[in-house]
Simulated scan of single mutants.
Amino acid sequence: MIRLADPLDEPESNCVDIPGFRQNVQLQAPLMAHTLKRFGLADEMWTMNYPSQRQIYASEYGLCIEAASFEPGAVLMLKEPSDSPLQCFNFTDNGYIALVGNPDFGFAVVEGEGSKAGGPSHLRRDLSLNTLSETDPSLATWKIVKSAKSWQE
């Protein structure tokens, strides 16, 4: 799972998420940040460096994260795995997920309050490719979580 390091105003943390849930998952919609539902749900789980180096893969759906463009504000979508440079990301030492073709662009939660999204306390936030040097690190610093035991660390 890819979890935002700063919980912002969500004590249950935020993670990179595919909109919808189970049979209502929306694979053509832009990815979002969402309150962590439960570790291990398919729409919140990612395989790093698969099927090729620097790709981020949703194994349940056979799709990779791809930026819509090399422009700030570009949405992040799911696409068939390809050799597109828009599917190549580095997880940096400071916790950014940066586009290889332009390392100042990376995953960031859009500023502002989240909107209610199912569940008793669940919030959703827009997620896009933003200029990291101009983005508050609390909105762009991520942690890769590999087990349910460590998702809150």
Rank of each mutant, 00 (worst) to 15 (best):
E12Y: 13
L127D: 06
K37Y: 15
V100G: 00
A108N: 10
I65L: 11
L63D: 00
Q53E: 13
C15H: 02
S150D: 14
S133H: 08
A68Y: 03
V110Q: 10
F39P: 02
V110L: 12
S82H: 00
P137L: 06
M48Y: 00
N49A: 04
V109W: 08
R22G: 11
S59D: 12
S59I: 02
E111V: 12
L127M: 10
M1D: 09
S59G: 08
E12T: 11
T141F: 04
E113R: 15
D9W: 05
E71G: 05
K37T: 11
A42W: 11
Q53V: 09
F105I: 13
P81A: 01
R3Y: 07
P72W: 09
E153R: 05
T47S: 14
W46I: 01
T47M: 07
V100P: 00
V100R: 03
T135P: 09
T35P: 00
P103D: 12
L99F: 05
S147Q: 05
P103H: 03
M77Y: 08
M45L: 12
Q53W: 07
N130D: 14
N14C: 13
E111P: 15
A29F: 12
T92D: 09
S13Q: 12
C64N: 04
P51S: 07
Y50H: 15
E111F: 08
E134P: 03
A42K: 09
A58T: 01
F107I: 06
R124A: 14
A68N: 05
S13A: 15
F39D: 05
Q55F: 07
L132W: 02
E44V: 03
N49P: 02
L36T: 12
H34N: 13
S128A: 15
A108K: 06
Q152W: 05
S13L: 14
A108W: 06
V110Y: 06
E60I: 00
T131H: 07
E80H: 11
Q23F: 10
Q55T: 03
I18N: 04
A67L: 07
R3C: 11
L76N: 01
P137G: 03
K79Q: 15
F107P: 05
A148M: 07
Q23N: 12
G101L: 02
E44M: 09
A42I: 03
A33Q: 09
D83R: 10
H122C: 11
N49T: 02
S13V: 08
D136C: 07
P7G: 11
E44Y: 03
L31D: 09
G101F: 01
E134K: 15
L123I: 13
S59T: 12
G106S: 08
L132D: 07
F21H: 13
Q28N: 15
M77D: 04
G101A: 13
A140K: 11
L63G: 03
L27F: 03
L31P: 06
A108G: 13
V145T: 11
A108D: 10
Q28H: 14
G40R: 03
L123H: 09
R54D: 02
N102P: 02
D136T: 03
L123W: 07
V110T: 15
G95I: 05
D9V: 11
N90A: 08
L41P: 00
K79I: 04
N49S: 08
E153T: 08
P19F: 08
N102C: 14
F91P: 00
M48D: 00
